[in-house]
Design a protein around this nucleic acid. Structure first.
Length: 855
RNA sequence: GCCGCUGUGGUGAAAUGGUAAACACAGCAGACUUAAAAUCUGCUGGGAGGUAACUCCCUUGCCGGUUCGAGUCCGGCCAGCGGCACCA
């Protein structure tokens, strides 16, 4: 049997038809302030999806999940009288695009354009109410001109003592040297060790390295010192933590970000080194345990190691450093099961008791965190304890744990012992006292440290935004804003060079900027374009500014810390995109370019859709569902509705084709409310459709549905809204006569979920009942109001409990008083039976609900 | 190891502290049909008793607590998923 004959309603005819009508009429065009048709009296609602990376594989079923949710919200808000901004675009730069191009032997611009076309077509076939005039594409020069422009803002800014980004010109006015100014820029050059991935031929940000491998491709990553562009995100660490508070985000995501930023409070402590002028500072979160420090450990890369190592230990130290230095991050973590290290021969003096303690080097101390050196308190730190056991170093108790716990390796709070002036204090008291003592003696002070590192911002790849920077006599400087956009050269061979030399070096004409200056050869990472795309949507066509002040104020304003009203996307961006975008937004805010300190007010993460087998969808498992197939077989409305009916939006849930059939049957039932089929299989308006008022039962079901669906959409509880529509449809189906106006109202409620079907049925009803159907497009209709009076029943069922157990129920008038209900309950034969003649101790009456008699 | 989330029928799931399992899937039975598909109707957590209508008991991972009343709140444990991981 062909699928054509099996169709229960002709979705494959009317879905494309309405998609064309919406597009032709620009039904979802959103006017901006200043436009002739802009209505300033309406409130705004900015609903945003995480824009897709247009891969060659096309849309997968995970995309429409979030996109349908935002589409329902957007359509509902539009119907409820809001100016709705619901745009779509393409995050098209980056490694995967370039690798795909290399694999298929095409230019990334060609593959990207083809992929975008594919994605756009797929999204259009799902009937999303986007304003396509606002489409953005990060690889479009008209877009990345402004990405480069924002980079120049970062380059030309610094953070002042108050922690705010300010124009670098302020420092120039203070007569600082070029070196001093360059060292304070938010975009700066650094030659620290970075994550180099030989396979990808580029460096990667810390956030892009997972378990010592590249997030893209899973290739090994090694540490090597290279000169790279960095963004000073660490200057915003505290604000990035603090300003999460005002946001309506899942607590788990806030926590993920807080943990990633990793604030910890402690103290710096200065140690003298025996026989040396120099001293060394360590960071510790446990200054209260200073009396228990029995040795010290430097990171192998620590700058002082060469100076302090004694001749008899030099060979061993050198050998150890060599071994550590040759390891990739992966090997280093893999081999980290057992502690290793060597003694330098040097000693430090513990400032609290003047004891000499040995200085070791070990790779469990990281150069990149704190000061790259630690005081080891083996008694109360598990790593130090393990190391001390291994190398037979002394372990000295300085914290008394609560009764019944061993002090060795005890890391929680307790009471200070063997600690001189700290003895008897609780751990928090001792921390505070020690910090004061250190500060008084000039030996240290309380400090805060963050795990967050500065953002490595350059890549040795072709398919990214070139930096608007030139080099002259060893110094960098920005090019003029008027020179933007800076296009990449047209390269035949854009593959990585296999060395840290970026592929842009293959275009000598492009590289030569002037007789004395050459261009920066690195490109920006994929994250750059996605850091600000939501702003571009507000004014996507503007060629004068990244977004007009007026549009930014209107769409991003509204008195809350975040400008976007609802942002829906996957958890995978919890610490990458969402942290980077917040950082850029804060810089733009400080500089006065945007009106809110945060970009996204409300964030919702959609849950992953698993395969039918409950496993993650993947080609190798063969459990991937292609949305195109579903649309072909069941229609776009079925796909939309099913993805919303599966379960709560935020939950991980498995796909079920049977479930798709279920919602498909529901849509067919709705279709048959309005349409009847002849014996020849021709659909026409159902004769049951009549211009009559709805009876009480239908009216009640309808108004309950208006109420519940409206409330559930606001709560993003789409599955329960759909079940209510199913109940309502059942009530309609049971009727012999279909009251047209009630059906039309129901279609309005259905339309955000299944817009094609609702639009089509309304148009068909309009042919016979033009006065009762919505005039023009149903998508432009107003959300119906429910009548509270229609919901009220004359009688309600009240349950009677004896000692909390259900024993009887009765229908009582809605206006019955507590006393009357109580009397009815006590009169019940079943209740009396279970009371066994005892007198009630207590009777709880919840009007309209229950009576509980306690005996 | 640390942090977080989630545990409810055969399945996806509902349930402002107030009738657990709405809605749907699957299954079973029936109607329509020569037959099938489609459609429509009914049943469908477990156990016990009763010819039957029906009645009773148990049931939201496990143990305890608060409450007239707990899937929901509190404490402890177990399992699964996710994040971080030598961050001093």
């Amino acid at each position: 049997m062909s699928s054509e004959q099996r169709k229960a309603f002709p979705f494959s005819e009317f879905e494309p038809k309405w998609q064309d009508v919406w597009e032709a009429k620009k039904a979802f065009r959103t006017p901006n302030p200043g436009d002739a048709d802009f209505d300033a009296s309406k409130p705004k609602y900015f609903v945003l999806d995480m824009f897709p990376y247009p891969s060659g594989a096309g849309l997968h079923v995970g995309h429409p999940e979030g996109y349908t949710a935002t589409d329902i919200i957007g359509r509902f808000k539009k119907m409820s009288g809001f100016n709705v901004l619901h745009p779509m675009g393409w995050d098209a730069f980056g490694l995967p695009a370039e690798q795909y191009a290399i694999k298929t032997g095409q230019h990334p611009r060609a593959t990207t354009e083809k992929n975008i076309e594919g994605f756009r077509g797929q999204l259009k076939r799902l009937g999303f109410a986007y304003d396509w005039d606002r489409e953005v594409n990060t690889t479009d020069p008209g877009y990345f001109k402004w990405t480069q422009w924002i980079f120049l803002k970062l380059y030309n800014s610094y953070v002042n003592d108050a922690g705010k980004a300010r124009p670098i010109a302020e420092l120039e006015g203070q007569g600082l040297s070029r070196e001093e100014i360059d060292s304070r820029r938010l975009a700066f050059v650094s030659s620290a060790p970075v994550n180099w991935c030989p396979e990808l031929g580029t460096v990667l940000a810390n956030e892009e390295v997972v378990d010592g491998k590249s997030e893209v491709g899973g290739f090994p990553v090694e540490r090597r010192p290279m000169r790279q562009w960095m963004l000073r995100i660490t200057s915003f660490a505290q604000r990035l933590i603090d300003e999460l508070d005002g946001l309506d985000w899942p607590e788990s995501i806030k926590l993920l970000q807080r943990n990633w930023i990793g604030r910890s409070e402690g103290a710096h402590v200065k140690f003298q080194i025996v026989g040396h002028e120099s001293d060394v500072t360590v960071f510790t979160t446990r200054p209260d345990t200073l009396f228990g420090a029995t040795y010290m450990v430097f990171a192998p890369e620590h700058a002082l190691v060469d100076q302090i190592t004694t001749p008899e230990h030099a060979a061993a130290v050198e050998a150890y450093r060599k071994v550590v230095g040759s390891k990739s991050d992966l090997e280093r973590t893999e081999l980290a099961k057992e502690k290793s290290g060597v003694f330098t021969g040097a000693y430090a003096i513990n400032p609290v008791n003047n004891e000499q303690i040995p200085i070791w080097i070990a790779d469990y101390v990281l150069m990149g965190y704190g000061t790259g050196a630690i005081m080891a308190v083996p008694a109360h730190d598990s790593r130090d304890f393990e190391f001390a056991q291994m190398f037979a170093l002394p372990v000295k108790q300085v914290v008394q744990p609560p009764e019944g716990k061993d002090w060795q390796g005890f890391t929680d709070n307790g009471t200070a012992v063997n600690s001189g002036f700290l003895d008897g204090l609780t751990t928090p008291e001792a921390k505070a006292k020690m910090a004061c003592w250190l500060e008084e003696k000039g030996l240290g002070k309380g400090t805060t440290n963050f795990k967050l590192r500065d953002w490595l911002f350059s890549r040795q790849r072709y398919w990214g935004e070139p930096f608007p920077i030139v080099w002259e006599e060893g110094n960098h400087r920005s090019i003029a804003e008027s020179e933007l956009p800076l296009l990449p050269p047209d390269l035949e061979d854009f593959r990585p060079t296999g060395t840290p030399e970026p592929p842009l070096s293959k275009a000598p004409d492009w590289v030569r900027y002037s007789a004395t200056a050459t261009r920066e050869l690195n490109t920006m990472p994929q994250w750059a374009g996605s850091c600000w795309y939501y702003l571009r949507y507000c004014d996507a066509q503007n060629s004068e500014r990244f977004v007009s002040e007026e549009a930014e104020k209107y769409w991003m304003g509204g008195g809350k810390p975040g400008g976007v009203d609802l942002y829906v996307g996957g958890t995978e961006h919890a610490v990458l995109h969402l942290l980077y975008a917040r950082f850029w937004h804060k810089v733009l805010f400080d500089l006065g370019y945007v009106s809110t300190p945060e970009p996204f007010q409300r964030l919702v993460n959609q849950g992953l859709i698993m395969g039918e087998d409950g496993q993650k969808m993947s080609k190798s498992r063969g459990n991937v569902v292609n949305p195109d197939d579903v649309v072909k077989e069941y229609g776009a409305d079925s796909l939309r509705l099913y993805e919303m009916f599966m379960g709560p939006l935020e939950q991980v849930k498995p796909w079920s084709m049977k479930g798709v059939e279920g919602v498909y049957r529901f849509l067919a039932r709705v279709w048959r409310l309005v349409m009847a089929v002849s014996e020849e299989g021709v659909w026409s308006l159902s004769p049951a459709l009549q211009d009559v008022p709805a009876n009480k039962q239908v009216t009640k079901a309808l108004h309950e549905t208006i109420k519940k669906c409206g409330e559930d959409i606001e709560k993003l509880s789409f599955n329960t809204a759909i079940s209510q529509m199913m109940i309502c449809t059942k009530t309609f189906t049971a009727e012999e006569v279909m009251p047209v106006s009630a059906i039309v109202t129901f279609l309005k409620v259905l339309s955000p979920f299944a817009p094609h079907l609702a639009e089509d049925l309304n148009a068909r009803i309009a042919t016979k009942f033009p006065a009762l159907a919505v005039e023009g497009l149903l998508s432009d209709a107003t959300w119906p109001k429910y009548d509270p009076a229609a919901l009220i029943e004359d009688e309600v069922e009240v349950v009677f409990q004896v000692n909390g157990k259900l024993r009887d129920k009765a229908r009582v008038p809605i206006q019955a008083t507590k006393e009357e209900i109580e009397k009815i309950a006590l009169a019940s034969a079943r209740v009396q039976e279970f009371m066994e003649g005892k007198t009630p101790k207590k009777i709880i009456v919840v009007p309209g609900k229950l009576v509980n008699i306690v005996v």
